[in-house]
């Protein structure tokens, strides 16, 4: 009976997964770059496709930056659980006494640190390129920081549901897009209302509430989805 009585520290697995994934990403640094490059290139192309006058760009800048950030996040989701599924790490996660909720949360945190956060950090630069009015910079950075975290959490469910599919990208996009819609609406409009002088507090509060809810629900749902898809 002695072994069964040993309580293993619950945080150990969580910390180990964070360290493992951060190390992996650091050794393959070029992987972080791809959503960022996508973000940069698409924003660079935008004025060339429409009219580069300051007035038009300033109107569409908050929405465009948000949409491109959303697409860049979406682009990176497919690989969230892919390698763990292919090499059997997922089975080890499920069969460990560590709660799967924490393991999923650890993976989501690393995903956000390596995609969402860099996007939020370079967003002001793109704001300058799109002549974003001066009142919009802080709301843009803060709303993107919270918003990309929500999108990573929601995306984890989509990635978990589609990890066992051969061509998952389209299915992933289809099931995740409707769930991203409220985040996009609230995020982009937070920036626009800040520029219009209405203030960003309401939007940021809504985003914060959404983040709290997503942290509670999404890793749980994704853990359930991983248990299902791990065997097929």
């Amino acid at each position: 009976m002695s072994d069964a009585q040993h309580g293993y520290p619950l945080g150990a697995g969580f910390r180990a997964i964070i360290r493992r994934d951060l190390t992996s990403v650091w050794r393959n640094r070029s992987d972080i770059a791809s959503p960022l490059v996508f973000f940069l290139i698409s924003i660079t192309l935008l004025p060339l496709g429409v009219d580069p006058s300051d007035k038009l760009l300033a109107t569409i800048a908050p929405g465009m930056i948000w949409i491109m950030a959303l697409l860049a996040t979406l682009l990176s989701l497919d690989s969230l659980f892919r390698q763990d599924y292919d090499d059997g790490s997922l089975t080890q996660f499920i069969l460990s006494p560590q709660p799967l909720y924490l393991t999923v949360l650890a993976k989501v945190i690393v995903h956000w640190l390596t995609t969402g956060l860099p996007l939020a950090i370079i967003a002001p630069l793109l704001g300058v390129m799109l002549s974003l009015p001066s009142g919009g910079y802080w709301p843009l950075v803060i709303s993107l920081t919270i918003g990309t975290a929500i999108m990573s959490l929601i995306g984890a469910l989509g990635a978990a549901l589609t990890v066992c599919l051969r061509s998952s990208a389209l299915v992933l996009t289809l099931i995740i897009m409707p769930l991203y819609l409220p985040v996009l609406i609230i995020g982009a409009n937070t920036v626009s209302s800040a520029i219009a002088g209405v203030g960003a507090a309401q939007g940021l509060a809504l985003l914060g509430a959404a983040l709290a809810m997503a942290v509670l629900i999404m890793p749980l749902a994704a853990a359930g989805a991983l248990r299902i898809s791990s065997n097929h």
């Binding site: 469910l157 549901l161 589609t162 066992c164 599919l165 299915v171 289809l174 099931i175 409707p178 769930l179 629900i217 999404m218 749902a221 359930g224 989805a225 299902i228 898809s229 065997n231 097929h232």
Partner: peptide
Amino acid sequence: GIVVLAEVYPSRDAADKACAILALV
């Protein structure tokens, strides 16, 4: 999303549960 997910899943049991989770969320 539900219709497509139910179609593309390799296993029917897994498809059912996956769709149920997605529908609940």
